[in-house]
Amino acid sequence: MAAAAAAGAGPEMVRGQVFDVGPRYTNLSYIGEGAYGMVCSAYDNVNKVRVAIKKISPFEHQTYCQRTLREIKILLRFRHENIIGINDIIRAPTIEQMKDVYIVQDLMETDLYKLLKTQHLSNDHICYFLYQILRGLKYIHSANVLHRDLKPSNLLLNTTCDLKICDFGLARVADPDHDHTGFLTEYVATRWYRAPEIMLNSKGYTKSIDIWSVGCILAEMLSNRPIFPGKHYLDQLNHILGILGSPSQEDLNCIINLKARNYLLSLPHKNKVPWNRLFPNADSKALDLLDKMLTFNPHKRIEVEQALAHPYLEQYYDPSDEPIAEAPFKFDMELDDLPKEKLKELIFEETARFQPGYRS
């Protein structure tokens, strides 16, 4: 834990890192770190609560700039109880001085990944967590956004079992017609939660990839272990087919990539493993919904509104309290091709509203 900075004593240090967030945020305490930044909790002297502050230093890398800009653009436009918001952003007053960006968010005690390492969940908890994931996802999908990296560590939890989806750095506007060349190379989302079509096709992607990830998360809540822990690309596919069985001819016809289709045709026939054999203690309604989410063919996979209306979630289902976005989200430009200098300018502009004396 960093010592509390005395008023006016300059930035606090946390594990050798400068955290320049005073005077409003003090009493910093280390939480963890990701690929390009550290997260601390801090005391907000204005709202009198502890908050989470993520320090991001992305400006050396085009990919990190892209992810940072995506996350900020999306989260500043989203407003939903099951999606983490941005409360404040701290950065230098000029673009030349801006080396880091500090993002202030609600402090959540833990995440689903940490929880599943230590606790076996009751059916009631599984049901409530799944409902909140789908409630947040309904809003995301209504904005025409794909999260693309749903996994237990991106689901934040607090002691009252509130759940918030975080990390929109890989999110995209849904565009089933656009052929994202190089899709697989830039697709760094965790393999275990990846839909089979991501490994088999490169053309376009749809909201059904997020539903697949939610199915993987439900299976993990039922058993405290990942359902498809593939060691590499082909191993991942083999794990999936080992449980779902061989795809039907109709399902194979959806695979545009001939090499991928021929690979699947070359494999020995596998039978589907019954879900109640894998999860003998699970609620039968939970397994019915799991089956509809972990469907090989993305066109037959359940959609988020149908999933919310499934009998497993009937005690929570309330369409009048499951809000959607006001308007579909649009990125003005494809960020993939922009140089990091341009992305830095866009991050600077996007964060201006939090600067003292800002006038829109």
Rank of each mutant, 00 (worst) to 15 (best):
T185N: 12
T181H: 11
T206P: 12
N238F: 12
I53M: 14
Q66T: 10
F329M: 11
K207T: 13
L335G: 10
G242Y: 04
T185R: 05
T351Q: 04
D167A: 14
D210E: 12
H178D: 08
L28Y: 04
D100C: 12
R353N: 02
L218G: 10
P152D: 03
G242H: 09
M199F: 07
T110M: 09
R135I: 02
K73V: 08
V101R: 06
Y102G: 00
V14Q: 13
P328E: 00
E60D: 15
A171M: 05
D179L: 04
A307N: 00
Y128C: 13
L28G: 03
K99D: 03
P328C: 03
L335K: 03
Y30F: 14
K117I: 06
T26N: 14
L264Q: 14
F279A: 07
Y43L: 12
G230I: 01
T295N: 13
K285A: 07
I90A: 09
C216I: 03
S202H: 10
P58H: 15
D20S: 08
M293W: 02
G85K: 13
R70S: 13
I165T: 06
P311W: 00
L265H: 03
L308H: 02
T118C: 07
V188W: 09
P176E: 09
N281T: 14
C254M: 00
L265R: 05
R91W: 06
G182P: 08
Q62F: 09
L134I: 09
K292M: 15
A309V: 07
S57W: 08
L294Y: 05
P268Y: 06
S246D: 01
K259N: 13
E197Q: 06
Q62G: 12
Q306N: 03
D167I: 02
K203C: 12
L184E: 10
T185K: 04
R225V: 02
D177F: 07
H299N: 15
F59S: 15
Y128I: 05
H178L: 15
L146Y: 05
I302K: 05
A352W: 07
V46H: 12
D179H: 08
Q62E: 10
N281G: 03
S284K: 04
N82A: 10
W212Y: 09
L346D: 12
D235S: 02
K203Y: 09
L258A: 04
H239S: 09
A52C: 13
L200S: 13
L121N: 02
D179F: 12
N87D: 00
K292L: 09
R148W: 08
H80I: 04
L267K: 03
D177M: 11
G204K: 08
T160W: 05
T63Y: 10
P229G: 09
N45Y: 14
C127E: 12
K340C: 10
K342H: 08
K151F: 01
V101S: 07
D44F: 12
S223C: 12
G85Q: 12
S208N: 09
Y193V: 11
I74A: 05
P152F: 03
Y312P: 01
G37T: 15
N238Y: 14
L343H: 11
P93H: 04
A286F: 09
K138G: 12
H120N: 14
L278F: 09
I198G: 04
K99R: 12
L130Q: 14
Y36I: 15
N123H: 05
K285H: 12
K73L: 12
K73M: 13
L264A: 06
E96W: 04
D210G: 00
Q97Y: 12
L264F: 03
E322A: 14
V273F: 02
D291L: 11
C254E: 05
D251F: 05
Q355T: 07
L234T: 09
A171Y: 00
V14M: 08
Q62C: 11
H232M: 00
H120L: 15
G8Y: 08
L75Q: 15
R353M: 11
S202Y: 12
Y312G: 05
A2R: 05
D210N: 12
L267S: 06
R359N: 09
N253I: 15
S208M: 11
G85W: 07
N253M: 11
E60A: 13
P229R: 06
D20T: 11
Y128A: 01
D251P: 03
P58W: 15
Q62I: 11
S208P: 00
S284I: 08
L146I: 12
Q132V: 03
Q105A: 09
R191I: 04
A6W: 10
I72L: 13
S248I: 05
P280H: 14
E81Q: 04
I90Y: 01
A189I: 04
Y113Q: 09
K114D: 09
